[in-house]
Nucleic acid binder design. Sequence first.
RNA 1: UGCGGGGUGGAGCAGAGGCAGCUCGUUGGGCUCAUAACCCAAAGGCCGCAGGUUCGAGUCCUGCCCCCGCUACCA
Length: 598
Amino acid sequence: MPQKIHICVAWPYAAGDRHIGHLAGAYLPPDIFARYHRLVGNEVLMVSGSDTHGTPITLRADKESITRQQVIERYHTRFVEAFLQFGLTFDLYTHTDTQNHWDVTHDLFLRHLARAYMYTDKQYQLYAVDDQQWLPDRYVEGTCPFCSFTQARGDQCDNCGRTYDAVELVAPYSRITGSTNLEKRPTEHFFFDLGQANDFLIEWLNRPDKASWRTHVLNLARARAESRELRGRPITRDLDWGITIPVPGYADKRIYVWYDAVIGYLSATREWALLTGDPAAWEAWWREGDEQVESFYFIGKDNIEFHAIIWPAMLHGYGPIAGPDAPGPWLKQPSDVPANEYLTLGDFKFSTSYGNVITINDAAERYQIDAWRYALTAMAPETQDSEFTWQEFVRRVNTELVANWGNLVNRVLGFAFKQFEGHVPQPGALDAQDEVLLTAVRGGFDSVGALYAARKFKAALDAALRLSQEVNRYLNDKAPWTLIKTDRAAAATSVYVVLQAIDWLKLLFAPVLPSSSQQVHSLLGHDGDLFGRQYTEMVADARGQHLVLRYDHRGATGSWQPAPLPAGQPLRKPEALFIKLDESVIEEELARMQVSTP
RNA sequence: UGCGGGGUGGAGCAGAGGCAGCUCGUUGGGCUCAUAACCCAAAGGCCGCAGGUUCGAGUCCUGCCCCCGCUACCA
């Protein structure tokens, strides 16, 4: 029976473009994982969406003198466009300003309240007297009380990384108006009581299944839990926009973004169920204790605490799905949180200027998608920060992707097409060398597959590439271009063996390189698609309309198995898989980045 | 005066107790089907430094030095 693989992807703020670091760190890995599991035959549900709340959106809107709604729509649309271009197969990519998300957030709020995971308390916050407005969190800046950094944010200092309360800032000022006439005023807020989940978290983080977690994730999470310093965290704010508070008397307050953002994983699953016409279908993905389901949260390292501490505590605080006192299953805890480190931009490390970004929208326009997917996977910061440079990008594409795999496909398909009348040749009996090669490539379904399953994508790609190199080696040994002059049947056999190897290799590469693998599939004369179809649509609900990105796996024919290649199958006219990059793109891109610097 | 990451052949990285490995580059050779691609061979490392634990240490412990990010509104 196939597994259910639930893939949860970090929710980006709809307040600014995503760059290639986000892609390498948080968006590409889950898609590789999703595609692998779909090929294997597992049922996959990959969800995410844009976060439409939070201070950055207001600040952006103020800066450009447009409405928040315009900011949200612009960036949400740009995310959807780029994710579509990069082939990120979200079963549902939505956003948080939907009726469904409000409903689910209210449900969690009320349940946490009912189960005493929530309490209210007075808190001092800064109030801008002249502007008559509260200044929660990042609406205020000032001098860090610890390190005296002068542009410290309201909740955390960028210089020393410490967190504190905004009222502790020295010389605070409004980030909206610059006003320094601020007062500390008491205000009542709801707090989510993390401390109540502390024992549970320690126990949970020490279960044997955590052995497969990345060490940097587990170390950080355990350190937090075992410090026993977890306590209440405010989850409401004095704001006039955002998700309302579902109890009377708090009309002038809204839910704080961190609380509702992580709820997106659950609400998006429910929205997906609504869209499929079976509103109850979400539950099959969320029952704790169901061995058939595993859930994976792909995020960047700055988000580890939210996904390995706070969200598990919130799920635990919810209790049984059916009701506070029901016997039934609880909400499912993450099976793994494979957080990546950062991909840093190396070309401008000494630049203090602003805006040297490579946005994913730009990236998609300028180079082949599979070239990006290859390079960013090969460079991915799986266990440590890694550096992106254009030189490295060109090198990876030209000397690894093009030279090894692209060229292999090209040289063999070209030869076969010309010498064997455009058909897969009929092989004779296989000799020991043929068998050795095919056994090695066939073994990739186990070895490379295991690496994909273990979320070791760099290693998986490396292993597939090494098999491709084996095929190149075999080809040089057999030299069918010489053999064909004296022994056409022997040449036919070795060409067949190589075509068979390529037909399997395309699958081993497919999670990372979906479109070029599809092309190889087609060139080898197969019909049908390895994967399903992505599409966008507008969804209407009580809060209006929103754009969603979706994926339909029906009709996909790709399967993680070494199927035999039929001899005699007509080939299609070969064409190059990848474009070799000219060295000049390094200079061009560096110049572009200089120009874009304000 | 912090937080985080790291120091392994020329470059980028893997390895986390048992003969130092991969990709690229370099040098020499082979091949000519192929996107000057492919294949073979060679050179190149006191695994940052100093102590310690151990039969045995890139790998564990202690101390030190150095580098990088934190100005890509921060994944």
